[in-house]
């Protein structure tokens, strides 16, 4: 859809300044773009490429590696229903069918009002609480069909204020003033890292290297 807004561009330059190399800021910047538009738009990727000095193809390479960066528009809420074994045994597939019926879309589809995108997912690591699902990666446990209908109604009516729109990573942003940053240097400039202690190689390796 769009490039970063001027406010987000400012934010982007602050994010970039926290890394020894602009390119290292790519993933936080992709989150920023997804937060802005709800998905990572092509124009946004081109913009990020300009900001960090790589080609759009390289941005796309990184972006497309991660399932949670969406490159097509999704609804305000992304509904991930688990159909993996534990949830399947406790009714996950039925839940998915119910969701298809309620929303009128197949997995991968978005409702006509642009509110909800339905997805079936593999295990989301809440097996003791099956069948479970996520709304914008926020868990809902032991959901039954009635609970699902209520969830959808609540989402549509805006009652679920605890769940921000898709793409929002955090609602409280931590700002570190530039003058307090300090200490970030490119690896070739920086000295030995603090966590690195010189360790004598074992005798067998010393022999091989000599």
């Amino acid at each position: 859809m769009s490039r970063l807004t001027p406010e987000n561009e400012l934010l982007a330059s602050e994010i970039i300044s926290r890394y020894p190399r602009p390119k290292s800021a790519l993933i936080p910047l992709l989150h920023l773009a997804q937060e802005q538009d709800g998905y990572v738009a092509d124009d946004a990727m081109e913009h990020l490429a300009e900001l960090v000095g790589i080609t759009p193809a390289e941005v796309l390479g990184t972006c497309s590696f991660y399932e949670m960066f969406k490159r097509e528009p999704v609804g305000r809420y992304l509904l991930n229903i688990c159909t993996n074994i534990a949830c399947q045994l406790t009714g996950g597939e039925e839940l998915l069918h119910e969701a298809e019926k309620v929303l009128g879309v197949r997995p991968g589809g978005t409702t006509a009002d642009g509110m909800i995108t339905l997805e079936d997912v593999e295990c989301i690591a809440a097996c003791t609480e099956g069948p479970c699902l996520q709304v914008n990666y926020r868990y809902e446990y032991r959901v039954d069909p009635a609970g699902l209908r209520k969830l959808v109604d609540d989402l549509r009516s805006g009652a679920r204020t605890d769940i921000p729109h898709h793409g929002t990573l955090q609602r409280v942003r931590q700002h570190i003033p530039a003058d307090r940053l300090g200490g970030i240097e490119a690896p070739e400039v920086a000295g030995t890292p603090a966590w690195f202690t010189a360790r004598q190689a074992p005798p067998s390796e010393q022999k091989a290297g000599s």
Partner: peptide
């Protein structure tokens, strides 16, 4: 030095 092609997806 023209990285205009890249692995896409996973």
């Amino acid at each position: 030095g023209d990285p205009l092609i890249h692995f896409i997806g996973r």
